[in-house]
Amino acid sequence: MLQNRHLLGLENYPREDIQTILDTAFSFREVLDRPVKKVPALQGKTVVNLFFENSTRTRISFELAQKRLSADTVNFAASSSSLKKGESFKDTAQNIEAMKIDAVVMRHPTPGAPWHLTKFVDAIIINAGDGTHEHPTQAILDMMSLQEKFGRIEGLKIGIIGDIRHGRVALSNIYGLITMGAEVTLCGPANLIPPFITDLGVTVNHNIDEVLEWADAINILRIQRERMGIGLIPSIREYRRLFGITTERLAQHKKEIVIMHPGPMNRGVEIDSSVADSDQAIILDQVLNGVASRMSILYLLLGGKIEQPK
């Protein structure tokens, strides 16, 4: 069993619980390799996927994890703009809770929204991304993929490349990786690295070639095109020159490092197509591990198999 009732974020999350989630995820990974990929572990449990922000892969990954565990699944796509029009967050949350559900998986554009949700509902809450704050299940699946590849996380040297400031993936990865004993270096444009980030125990290096030389694996974050033109990134050409993971750049390094990307990728922007499709990349393993990780989290938080009523 895990020490926290919810999975809100990985800041101060216990190391042994991360290990439990990872170990359980590997056993579910075996389930996913079977011809029949479904287990009755969460039969009778109802999980709502409450998405206030568009998401395809995270939502599908969660939904698949729920279905593989035989839970009942409801998807609720609320646009945050409708909340701005007056429908309150509290009402939405309490309406869903009133339908007797066991857990809420929530994606929301505002940092802290899942913490806010705990004030209004009793259900178990899993954070599927809260704005520019955390995305703990992504970090879990990234760590699972590293463990699968290297057999360990402790002592690994991990580079996180790109827009650290506007991404939630980086922060959860930092919390998780530091807790598990990895070293983390961030690399990206200085104005896209949050201030005071080194207080979290990471180093910052704006020289991508030095980071590639140092790292065992790099996690490449998506450069959102909407960041262009507002003074954050001068141009795609400039970004690629300084931070793009290109075939040529990788070829300069003797060591073959592992390439990760949480998706969705902008091929030709932060990562070359040929790099994404190379043997170095474990991007599709991450996707599969995402399902296994989410199965593990749902299973552990929802208490596994329930007794049949007598």
């Binding site: 800041e11 940092p111 802290g112 809260d130 704005g131 520019t132 704050h133 955390e134 939630r168 922060l171 949050p194 201030p195 005071f196 980030i197 207080d199 979290l200």
Partner: peptide
Amino acid sequence: NEGRVSTQLGLPGNP
């Protein structure tokens, strides 16, 4: 406030 805490919380900071 912009600082370590705003970075930890992912909230935009006011320096």
